[in-house]
Nucleic acid binder design. Sequence first.
RNA 1: GGUUCCUUGGCCGAGUGGCUAGGCACCGGUCUGCAAAACCGUUUACGGCGGUUCGAAUCCGCCAGGAACCUCCA
Length: 488
Amino acid sequence: MGHQLSIYNTLSRKKEIFEPLHSPLVGLYVCGPTVYGDGHLGHARPAITFDLLFRYLTHLGYKVRYVRNITDVGHLEHDADEGEDKIAKKARLEQKEPMEVVQYYLNRYHKAMEALNVLPPSIEPHASGHIMEQIEFVQKILDAGYAYISEGSVYFDVEKYSKKFHYGKLSGRNIEELLETTRELDGQSEKHRSMDFALWKKAAPEHIMHWKSPWSEGFPGWHMECSAMGTKYLGEEFDIHGGGMDLIFPHHECEIAQSTAALGKETVHYWMHNNMITINGQKMGKSLGNFITLEEFFTGSHKILTQAYSPMTIRFFILQAHYRSTVDFSNEALQASEKGLTRLLESYTRLQKLIASPTSTVEVKDLREKCEEAMCDDLNSPIVISHLFDASKAINTVADGNGTISMEDLEELKSVFKLFIEDLLGLQTENQESTNKDAYKQAIDLLLNIRLDAKKNKDWATSDRIRNELTTLGFTIKDTKDGFEWGL
RNA sequence: GGUUCCUUGGCCGAGUGGCUAGGCACCGGUCUGCAAAACCGUUUACGGCGGUUCGAAUCCGCCAGGAACCUCCA
């Protein structure tokens, strides 16, 4: 390894060399979904981004503890302190237990993640399973003097906190100004200031999810779960915290404030944020109603989609852009990704069948190095992919008989492709259910061998019939110099 | 209004001072019974105007357009 991993830290707004606190151990926390609806394209972005990070850190030899939470309580609609709990609302509408709603959407989320070949995290804690930890965390903030109790709810005192610490350091918000302009107390609210946020909320009578606490029968504020669960599983200081850019404010800013107030120190060393997926230049999101669920992508059932897209196409589409860029959805862009992915994976299949020669006419020696370099540069997956395409051109040249490759180079190329395509980018190479059955494979081979004989006898009718009928069934048939290739 | 960021060829999308990104599409060619695939070649760029520099897509300023956050969102 000639390179050091550098990652962009939102705190400093620049790339920094990654130095773990307790190498080889690495703590990674990523904000997971609020499970009150089906996962959409937007959910796939952080999942895939941090899956790539998880895989790469592991490849570098780190022992990663990856925590991705499940928000199943406390996430309110409309206003952080006034709206209805999202899970509870869904449960009310569907006349179900809140946990029934949670389990249903969580199962579907897991299924989608598995399809996208996103590795499961080491720990997937539920907010509702850590109420005690959250109550203790709130108590610590109260004890430290940075929170106040009002009508059974507990609020974070942003003004007091900002006298000693920097509230706004992550989002770049200037809180001094806001404090000036909101000096007047708002008599309508339990809160002293509009910018104060809830650590614990007293449950209104209609709320169906509530727990006992020293202050009231109620539930934790949304930001609380990440502070409590992150520090519980990764320690009071840990390495990386990730999530979508839209969570920077208020969620992550509040998390920093909570942890700093309670523990007196910075908990997170590197903050990483993936950018948004847009549709017609606008953010794709639940609240905007312009989202397409992952299920709809896989089946092509959304009206905006001209076809179905496989999970691997979605994954490749996302990896073809850098995680800190916005990426704009369109059928055209997805179809381009689909074709590109096919090209890449077909050359990978061809690679397995190449015959070595005494010498090489293709250059493969620095491929591994170039790919590692790109990954180390803040996970630049598009560059990795461009290098792999260069290599796939070399593979095709050799496969066509227009070049040669030595045994040494061939082994290196196989090793690099396996590492980057399968292990790191996580692109599954074949549909294992359909092509792994030997009898099935041999039957297709038999048909195509019959076609080959027909071709030799210039029996084009038989030859074309076999090709056309197989094509109709969804196969792709390609003639090569001395035989054929096929796929589904 | 405040904060942050973006504008690259027909489309997507890297690149942050000099060296062909890459993919998709298009066109020409090789191969093929035909087709597909593959390979070779070609074409289309850095929002506008200034500035710094020997040299700028890349740095600085202004202008235009767009986005995210400031209320829940990945």
